[in-house]
Design a protein around this nucleic acid. Structure first.
Length: 793
DNA sequence: CGCACCACAATTTTT
DNA sequence: TTGTGGTGCG
């Protein structure tokens, strides 16, 4: 082929590949087709970031670097060029196959791509969407979290680092318990050295790749005397973990990076393997994660990071916005593409978001826009206190939802503690809701207990987990006995299990020998079941029975124990889920999966209920209607942030995240006074409110004339003026008379429609109604609150 | 060992 | 106000 034909081919190839991504907007397409070298994708909220990621991978798999490359395969003929040039926008199947063959330039193998995310949820979604788009082969792509990717590398190669491939993973509470012991052994007072704090200091060291020895060295010149102690604790802690063949979450990254740095063979293997490295949510990466991705992409240099510096809200756990801000310096020749078209929100919402975030200095700068103009203004409501705020929100939802699409609504707040007042209001008003967050499933004591049993059965030398369960349920092996065992084990450099399963060899254990043997027989007996091929779920049932754990819970059937038993049983469904996804299920495999998969209770669209969560947990989600509550100075932004530039910018980003969750409407509320730590304190509207342009806002509420009242009186009266208060002046809302509802009355409710009162139970100055609604079934409502939305027929 | 009692603290959260 | 963790008693 001659030069001009070459040019024609390149143009036609580019045009064809572009055509294959015609469903994307220009910027998105550019992001997909930019395959080579470092690429920073600044993806604004709602800009179709994941779509781009998926399509970018699809492009790599189908066309390799065809969209950018200048090479031309030898087999291309003039006829081929003409064919491509004349190809219609909507080719037939055959034409498409031929064109694909012509345009593909070293298509990438799935196993040469790694796409790293933060959460298991994100990784799972990525895998699902890849599979939908690409079919089977997608499974070979490394689409996983930082931690699971590192684990996979470590399982193969960690022996070079002084651990063995069957290492266990400590979660934060395991780490804390271990650290507590370390500090106690060192004779450090846990007031001056809170385990959590010590661990966080150590975590920062690991993030900077500083070893215990280096930290000790560094601490010598320091004015903070505690640092030397912490450095020593760091060394002792690491020794313990190594002795137990355990890694904590920070170690997983730290050791992987150390391994890749120290071992050229291992490094080169993975560097060659990963031709393309993609990193999602890059604004959330910390330093060690930067090092990891930079190492992995070290050979081919094809690193694509996707993120939004304006949505970086995890500084407190080590995320550094610097990674995104200095990407271009760290990767010379990097290209930057901004995705600013938003497909989620109305213009009013985006105007507000843009205006707020523009006040930040440390940012790359972006301006979100949407093709859909207009939209309802942002409603700003001033409530008298948190209870009236709750009633307002509940009322708005009832009025807007007509009792149907509760799942279209989300309530976002800065702190978890705020959910309480809202829950009360929602219960009073009969609005179904679900609170996301709080104690997670795998953090519950009973679940950890069962997992500890499984860990010990899987690995007898897991001292930490063994200590947890050896006397749970109580077996007469009290603290004293365990301490003795620990002392003996330490002296002989053996595991706890080694000692307690052989009590007659140790004089001090004579008294408890019988009980100790019973315990080790229990563990051995259970392990035998698995060896004999019992299935995991069956085995788990047996575990519940033989350990006496199930008995312990069911013998005292308190409400609490019932939920515990449920949780313990629920773990069995995790086992089933694991079995369903795994070719060769094993206890060890299950435990490994569980160790890195802790978020069983994340938000997923399920029931038709309103959801309540912190702004942090809402990141990445979207809802038609969003309520941002508690928008007050001191709460959002929090007290700690006021007067600290960096912190304030983080709060502002958080605010930006909150605003950009909304698709159709955003309602912001703040209360004039609020109960905090049992004290009522007054508050001013958030300073961020003033950063939202006036013309985006419609104000409501306002309680200037609200008289001071006694607590109880206040609580009851606000519910009556809750959502109607925009219309009713506060002064004209005296104590609401209890509406006269009787059993058998027909009522019409604003949201739930027609209903029949089944029962009336007087409660204080109020009454609990049970109402059978024609459309949605029976509901329990408080008469006073519900009265605002309901009339007798 | 289990329970009651008191002191104390208290953003945000994933792995 | 709420929840947790530690201590001391029966």
């Amino acid at each position: 082929m001659n030069d001009s034909l070459d040019m024609r081919f390149l143009a036609a190839r580019k045009k064809y590949i572009e055509g294959r991504f015609s469903m994307l907007n220009d910027m998105q397409r550019q992001a997909v087709l930019t395959t080579e070298g470092p690429l920073l994708l600044l993806a604004g909220a709602g800009s179709g970031k994941t779509t781009v990621l998926i399509n970018r991978i699809a492009n790599l798999l189908r066309y390799g670097h065809g969209s950018e490359g200048k090479e031309i395969p030898d087999f291309v003929t003039e006829a081929d060029v003409r064919f491509l040039e004349e190809l219609s926008a909507d080719p037939s199947e055959n034409e498409r196959v031929r064109a694909d063959g012509l345009c593909a330039l070293e298509p990438v193998k799935p196993w040469n791509i790694i796409a790293i995310t933060f959460t298991n949820k994100a990784a799972g979604e990525l895998r699902d969407r890849l599979e939908t788009l690409l079919g089977e082969g997608a499974g070979d792509i490394w689409a996983m979290t930082f931690h699971s990717a590192c684990c996979r590398i470590l399982r193969r190669n960690i022996d070079r680092m002084g651990y063995t491939g069957s290492f266990t993973i400590y979660d934060s509470s395991d780490s804390e318990r271990q650290m507590k012991e370390v500090l106690k052994d060192m004779g450090l007072d846990d007031k001056t050295f809170p385990p959590k704090y010590v661990l966080s200091v150590i975590g920062r060291q690991k993030d900077r790749l500083i070893s215990p020895e280096e930290m000790l060295e560094n601490s010598r010149g320091s004015s903070d005397l505690r640092l030397t102690q912490i450095a020593k604790a760091y060394a002792a802690y690491q020794k313990r973990l190594k002795d137990n063949n355990a890694l904590d979450f920070d170690d997983i990254l730290y050791v992987t990076v150390k391994l890749l740095q120290q071992e050229p063979e291992v490094r080169e293997y993975y560097q060659r393997k990963f031709q393309y490295v993609l990193v999602d949510e890059y604004q959330d990466t910390n330093h060690v994660q930067y090092l990891l991705t930079s190492l992995l992409s070290g050979h081919w240099g094809n690193i694509c990071v996707v993120g939004d510096d304006d949505q970086s809200i995890y500084r407190f756990r080590g995320a550094t916005i610097e990674n995104i801000l200095s990407f271009e310096e760290q990767y010379p020749g990097a290209r930057v593409i901004r995705l600013e078209q938003n497909y989620r929100s109305t213009q009013s919402i985006l105007d507000a978001a843009n205006a707020v975030i523009a006040h930040n200095l440390g940012r790359k700068g972006k301006h979100l826009w949407t093709a859909r103009q207009g939209g309802a203004p942002i409603l700003v409501y001033e409530a008298s206190d948190e209870s009236s705020e709750g009633n307002f929100v509940a009322g708005q939802i009832l009025a807007g939802s007509k009792g149907r699409n509760f799942k279209d609504y989300a309530i976002l707040y800065r702190t978890n503690a705020q959910s309480n007042a809202l829950e009360y209001a929602f219960k009073r008003n009969g609005v179904p809701y679900k609170v996301i967050g709080g104690t997670r499933f795998f953090d519950r004591a009973e679940v950890k207990d069962m997992l500890s049993y499984l860990c010990v059965i899987n690995n007898r030398t897991d001292d930490l987990r063994l200590a947890r369960i050896v006397n749970n349920p109580p077996r007469g092996l009290g603290a004293k006995t365990i301490e003795t065992v620990q002392r003996l084990a330490e002296a002989e450099n053996k595991s706890l299990y080694d000692v307690l399963s052989d009590p007659y060899s140790y004089a001090p254990l004579e008294k408890s020998a019988q009980k100790l043997l019973q315990f080790s027989a229990l563990i051995d007996g259970l392990a035998k079941l698995l060896e004999d091929g019992m299935s995991l779920p069956e085995f788990y049932d047996e575990l519940l029975v033989r350990t006496g754990y199930a008995d312990m819970l069911s013998s005292k059937p308190t409400e609490e124990n019932k939920t515990r038993l449920e949780n313990v049983r629920e773990l069995k469904s995790s086992i089933h889920a694991y079995m369903a996804n795994t070719a060769e299920p094993s206890l060890a495999g299950f435990l490994e999966e569980i160790a890195l998969y802790t978020d069983l209770e994340q938000y997923s669209e399920g029931d038709n209920t309103v959801v309540m969560m912190t702004v942090h947990s809402a990141k990445g989600l979207e809802f038609p209607h969003v309520f941002l509550v508690g928008f007050e100075d001191g709460l959002f932004p929090g007290m700690r942030a006021i007067g600290d530039q960096e912190e304030m910018e983080e709060e502002r980003r958080l605010c930006y995240v909150a605003i950009t969750r909304a698709k159709e409407t955003l309602t912001i509320s703040h209360a004039r006074q609020r109960m905090i730590y049992g004290r009522t304190s007054s508050a001013l509207p958030s300073r961020f409110l003033r950063e939202i342009p006036e013309e985006c806002i419609e104000k409501r509420g306002g309680y200037r004339a609200e008289p001071q009242r006694s607590m109880t009186y206040e609580k009851r009266s606000v519910s009556s003026n809750g959502y109607l208060s925009g219309a009713l002046r506060a002064n004209s809302a005296p104590s609401a008379p209890l509406p006269d509802y009787n059993k058998g009355d027909m009522v019409m409710h604003a949201a739930f429609g027609r209903g029949l009162i089944l029962s009336v139970v007087k409660m204080g100055g109020d009454a609990l109604l049970e109402v059978a609604f024609d459309d949605i079934g029976t509901k329990k409502l408080m008469a006073k609150a519900a009265g605002a939305h309901m009339k007798k027929l």
